[in-house]
Design a protein around this nucleic acid. Structure first.
Lengths: 195, 195
DNA sequence: CCCTGATGTAGACAACGTAAACATAAACTC
DNA sequence: GAGTTTATGTTTACGTTGTCTACATCAGGG
């Protein structure tokens, strides 16, 4: 399909850019990601990316959207298991894609125009809520579950834990213990608590 | 003290820079903070800041350190109250200084050379642990408490909640509910909230 | 076959971080 | 107090970046 062809038109820049961006993102961090370097590595001129992304922020936003989709998928896969399993999947995604996860919740992102963020975020949130099985009036339980995994993800990503807690051997165990401190996780599985 | 004097030497640049940086940080976000603009607004040449900060990262790190000290102070003030009160103070700090809080946990920060981060962070962590009153063997409870407030802070800062949950009127109430889902907060030395 | 729109290129501009060479003023020494 | 040293601020310079504009190239439809 793609041997020599035209040499002028790339074919599927946009995708190539996103793929290259994804790599440098995890290697260099979000701040080390430049459009020009991206173009250079992809073999196009520095102006080319602007045919596919209105701005650097726009590329970042596309990356973040990709991330939300993947996270959504990870959660969907665990939909029919326990709340704990979902939380562990959530944290696993964050730890495997640290820079991407950080980017997804970066305040710099233009969250206004495509409401992709509120959409994907609220979809994940709803998925979580279904799992918590709470009444609609009290979403504090769902929010607590989300906050717990979100916070633990950030702590792990940023390596804020003392060394003795970071033993990768016992990490899954630690995560499970932490998630266990949520009262919802205990009375799990269809139990409705009366307020 | 400072009427005319020399006009050449600023007097206490460093502090002025930090103060100006603090302002622009919350107004423009971390990415909108440039050394040159800072120097401009402070009335010095664009090379001057380098006499006080080795690099932009260095300035950011100084800001973050400042933030950790203030957060530490906020927590120390609530040391003798309930775990919930401490959590609320933590979240209050984060919400009042959103960009600073984000910066404090930014992966871009050079956390290696001055271990200011691990120091301040672990100090706060220890303060928290004292409050949870758990055995040293199991720090999962402490970690859960930290993760919960850290996560909720991020969610509030980034405005990830649906509008109906963001009613500023009911926000303190919501926060309290969320913190209440931590099992440690319940069996806690009979501390009552004082309204 | 030309024309139109999509895509890539080339050049320009301002802003930035950072370093080096220089200027100034304060501190210290005698 | 004169002279030297040191801390602090200025200027100039360089390379990189995001982004805009004018231009080039190509694919597809009338």
């Amino acid at each position: 399909m793609s041997s020599k062809k035209s040499e002028y038109h790339h074919g599927d820049l946009r995708e190539s850019l996103l793929k290259a961006a994804r790599e440098t993102l995890e290697q260099e961090g979000a701040s080390g990601l430049s459009l020009r370097d991206l173009a250079r590595r992809t073999g196009v001129s520095h102006g080319a990316p602007y045919r596919h992304f209105a701005s650097r922020q726009d590329l970042l936003a596309a990356l973040a959207a990709e991330g939300f989709n993947e996270l959504s998928q990870c959660l969907r896969a665990k939909e029919d298991t326990s709340l704990k399993a979902m939380g562990e999947a959530y944290i696993a995604f964050a730890v495997v894609n640290p820079s991407l996860y950080k980017l997804m919740f970066s305040p710099e992102l233009d969250r206004t125009k495509p409401q992709f963020l509120s959409d994907s975020a609220s979809e994940a949130f709803n998925r979580l809520r279904k799992q918590t099985g709470r009444a609609d009036q009290d979403q504090s339980g769902t929010l607590a579950a989300w906050a717990l995994v979100h916070g633990l993800s950030g702590i792990l990503i940023d390596r804020l834990l003392a060394k003795e807690l970071l033993d990768p051997e016992e990490l899954p165990e630690l995560i499970e213990s932490v998630l266990g401190h949520l009262d919802i996780a205990k009375s799990n599985n269809g139990s409705q608590k009366i307020d």
